[in-house]
Design a protein around this nucleic acid. Structure first.
Length: 287
DNA sequence: AAGACGAAAGTGGTTGA
DNA sequence: TCAACAACTTTCGTCTT
């Protein structure tokens, strides 16, 4: 239920309220699925198998014992073949299948474009080859690859956001992410605060002049060395806060802190530094 | 009443002996 | 491997709008 449509160019969120038809939970058994399902089966997957779980009988008869039409027969034949194939292929394939469906679910919930999903899928395949998934949850590794893919494509999402959507806790997600970087020997630079601005500004309903001013503030902050060793999310939040006041579209520290997933204290600390170093006197109490 | 402020103590990751 | 360290969080009492 948390879909957004995002302009690929600028990141502007065009519309909200898309419906994710997938279940938002995972079930490890059918009992659990029954227990957690609140809306009944969305479709009759049990009939002549659209899922992979149903066993296809060898006889060419349907459940009431009648003979099947020729076209139906060939369809069943095809399905039977797939079922055998999926058994022949080992645990790696089963792991992948599960992972890919989890990836789709997660990416859909986070409105992550297809090209980034594919990169994440590639990373996951590599991590399987490297046996990184052993002893870790599939869900955690999937989330980590997705998080990494977003950062590689310069469309970072806060770690917290990914963690929430995947119900993997932040700590584990971070661990998996770092393992991924180490094992696959990929280097991902710190995320650029500017990359967060379009999303955050959109969530806060801020005009594009505010966005432009925010970017300006971030660039100048970087030149002054204010960004070294600082959390990019905190910088993004603080710059938005300053810009929103300067252009008279003020948002509270709390509002901004919430979308950026940092605390108000961090917003405060960063924005004080920005105001001091960039000498934005109109926000200063002193003359 | 809500927002902003800043001090103080706690957390998890990084670094360097 | 461990301790010091920097940045951020949590919490809370106080001031400002």
């Amino acid at each position: 239920m948390r879909g957004e449509r995002i302009c690929a160019g600028c990141g502007l969120v065009l519309s909200d309220h898309h419906i994710d038809t997938g279940a938002e939970w995972r079930a490890f058994s059918s009992e659990e699925a029954d227990a957690r399902s609140r809306v009944g089966a969305p479709m009759r997957y049990t009939v002549h198998d659209k899922g992979l779980s149903t066993v296809i009988d060898w006889r060419d008869r349907d459940t009431s014992g009648r003979k099947l039409s020729p076209s139906r027969r060939s369809e069943i034949y095809r399905l039977r073949k797939w079922q055998i194939r999926s058994r022949v292929h080992g645990s790696v394939d089963r792991n992948l299948a599960q992972a890919m469906s989890e990836l789709e679910r997660l990416a859909s919930q986070l409105s992550i474009p297809k090209s980034i999903r594919e990169l994440a899928a590639l990373l996951y395949r590599k991590s399987i080859i490297k046996k990184l998934v052993r002893g870790r949850s599939i869900e955690a590794m999937v989330a980590a690859t997705l998080y990494a893919a977003c950062r590689i494509r310069q469309k970072p999402r806060p770690l917290d956001e990914v963690a929430d959507a995947s119900r993997v806790d932040k700590k584990k997600l971070g661990q998996c992410y770092r393992l991924l970087l180490r094992s696959l020997k990929i280097k991902i630079p710190l995320s650029n605060p500017i990359d967060y601005i379009p999303r955050f500004a959109s969530e806060l309903s801020l005009s594009s002049p505010v966005q432009l001013r925010t970017v300006e503030i971030l660039k100048r902050s970087r030149e002054k060395g204010l960004t070294i060793g600082r959390d990019p999310l905190g910088l993004a939040a603080a710059a938005i806060y300053v810009a929103s006041i300067l252009l008279d579209e003020r948002r509270t520290q709390r509002e901004i802190a919430e979308v950026a997933r940092v605390t108000e204290v961090t917003v405060r600390n960063r924005y004080k530094e920005i105001v001091r170093v960039l000498q934005i006197d109109s926000l200063n109490s002193f003359g």
